[in-house]
Design a protein around this nucleic acid. Structure first.
Length: 159
DNA sequence: GCCAACGTTGGC
DNA sequence: GCCAACGTTGGC
């Protein structure tokens, strides 16, 4: 199957793209996802080699800041079993883990932030899930055309 | 900080 | 299964 495209959200004050960039091997466990729809995408559809837009939410400059790729497919999110952890889930058992994470590796910082505002007004991004009112999914699929358009904006290859 | 929109929980 | 109450997300 050809690679799929995704967008993941993170709050930069908690974990930013630069944090990922500076991590060993530029890789981290993308843990803490606690929404069933997002979990299902991680578990059932995200595959090694898939490409990912990293989006900063709840901050001064919201938008896509960098690119990553999936380097390990879904496995049990260890934080769900850590007592006292913000993402602990006492109802989840190791025999039947409720939550999963994948490993993401940063591949490229975008030279320009692709701001939420610019995405909303770009005709090439019409219909993008992120831009729909009330959309809160922290892991969401992105079409190849939208992926390419975001890259064009972020690399300043505007036509 | 405000608040709209969405998701989850739990009583009935 | 319904739905009110509560919690969370996330833009502004």
């Amino acid at each position: 199957m050809s690679p799929q495209y995704w967008l993941v959200k993170t709050e930069p004050e908690v974990f930013s793209f630069d944090d990922l960039w500076r991590a060993p091997k530029r890789t981290t466990a993308w843990d803490g996802v606690r929404n069933y729809q997002a979990r299902n995408y991680l578990r059932d559809q995200m595959r090694k080699g898939d490409q990912v837009l990293v989006y900063h939410s709840s901050c001064e400059e919201t938008g896509v800041v960098g690119l990553a790729r999936v380097v390990r497919e879904a496995y049990a999110d260890p934080t769900q079993f850590q007592a006292g952890h913000v993402h602990a889930d006492p109802a989840s058992s190791p025999a039947d883990p409720r939550w999963v994470c994948v490993d993401l590796q940063a591949t490229r910082k975008l030279p320009r932030l692709v701001s939420l505002g610019s995405m909303k007004t770009d005709p090439g991004l019409d219909g993008m899930l992120l831009l729909q009112k009330g959309s809160r999914l922290s892991v969401q699929p992105v079409s190849e055309a939208h992926w390419q358009r975001v890259l064009d904006l972020g690399l300043d290859n505007r036509s």
